[in-house]
Simulated assay, not measured.
Amino acid sequence: MQLQDIGEFNFIDSINSDVINDASTVVTGIGDDCAIYKANPEMEQLVSIDTMVEEIHFSLRYMTPYDVGYRLMTANLSDIAAMGGIPRQVVLSVAAPKALDVAILDEFYKGIKDQCKLHHVNILGGDTVSSQEGIVLTVTIIGEVPRGTAVLRSGARPGDIVGVTNYVGYAATGLGALSYGYDGYDMTILGHQRPDPQIELGQALRMHGVTSMNDISDGLASELHEIAKASGVNIVIDEQIVPLHEETYTLAKSLGTRPVDYALYGGEDFQLVFTAPKELEDTLKKIGQITIIGQVLEGNNIVQMVTKERKIETLEARGYNHFGN
């Protein structure tokens, strides 16, 4: 059955169940012109928006509709994680061709709902419209963080250490394996199709006193440049310490590429990169899933890497650019 066969309002009615996962924060959900949620007076509110466009951010050749919905929510949840926050509410908008199979749209929403349920996030409403070509999915997320504690990009200071969570270059490895039809990349393919936001780690890092933080959506090099620019510092990392999965090394060897480039320029890992005072290094390592990869220096917005040959390489702010060539 196609979307045009059931119409906008019937489709909306069909997806409005199982959307409230924390009723304590909701006054009025779906059904009015606006939803009403309760903000905790001890918290500051966080808001972010992400859009995914078919054949730009995702392809149904490499991902199921469920994966796309799941990954869309990860992108939004990751923005809250990067501030050390707690996700609370979302509203979403879908533009889809009239001839789209309703079952595909149902699977998009199932992926979205499952991620929301996992992280106790409410879906408070949204919009469904037609598009001339392709699917466009947009989510606005609202979160919260204790007053005065949000972790910004602008707090890095000379002498700080630089760290990342888990593996980086993971998603780009999975996409590369899918693109070339390679077998044996189950972990990184899953990392591309269903990445998870680092919400708990983000909160733990905030509570331990990290000085700046960013989520890795456009590649590690790009995110480090954002921190360096916002903080007015230089950053240097060590190629040999950047945590790469063994599947990244295997793919790079097969393709004759440099393994670390998957981390630097691949993006969409939705891990966290952060800076913290040097004296916190041992404490942060005890949290687990954290690798210290570099340090913050005095300077003016330069990001460099010590290569495995022990040479200094200046890294470009090169991630995915929607309006680049």
Rank of each mutant, 00 (worst) to 15 (best):
L60E: 05
S154F: 01
L137A: 03
L255C: 04
K98A: 13
K110A: 06
I287P: 07
L105W: 01
T149L: 09
D101L: 12
A230N: 12
L190D: 04
I287T: 06
D50P: 03
G324N: 10
V164P: 03
M207G: 13
P97H: 08
R61H: 12
V145W: 00
T291P: 01
L60D: 03
L264N: 14
H119M: 08
A96F: 10
Q271V: 13
Q89F: 14
L72K: 02
C34W: 14
G126H: 13
M43S: 12
E107G: 12
G159F: 00
I49N: 11
C116L: 06
P41K: 02
L124K: 06
Y70R: 10
L118C: 14
D5T: 08
S48D: 07
E268I: 15
D79T: 14
P259W: 02
A99V: 15
I20C: 01
A156G: 09
V260M: 02
A82I: 10
E54R: 05
D67M: 03
I312K: 09
K117C: 14
V306I: 11
Q89D: 15
K253W: 04
G143I: 01
V303R: 09
M52I: 10
A82M: 13
R157Q: 12
I199H: 10
D114Y: 06
H225V: 03
Y180F: 15
R206G: 00
G84N: 00
I135V: 09
N214F: 07
G85Q: 03
I161Q: 02
P97K: 13
G169R: 05
I30A: 06
Y167F: 14
H192S: 08
D183Y: 07
D196M: 09
Q304T: 07
I86W: 10
V19G: 10
K98M: 14
E226S: 12
Q240F: 13
S24T: 09
I241R: 12
T188E: 00
I227S: 08
V210E: 11
K278I: 08
A81E: 03
S212A: 10
K285T: 00
E316P: 07
A75W: 11
N40V: 04
G29C: 04
E200W: 10
Q198F: 06
A230Y: 13
A228W: 04
A228P: 05
K110Q: 13
I15C: 01
F9P: 06
V68C: 04
I142A: 12
A228F: 05
N325A: 15
D13K: 15
D160Q: 00
E42Y: 14
T211E: 02
G111Y: 04
V68L: 05
E239F: 00
F274W: 04
V162H: 10
L264G: 10
I20E: 03
T64C: 01
D238M: 08
I15M: 03
L315Y: 08
P259N: 05
A221C: 01
V162E: 06
A252T: 00
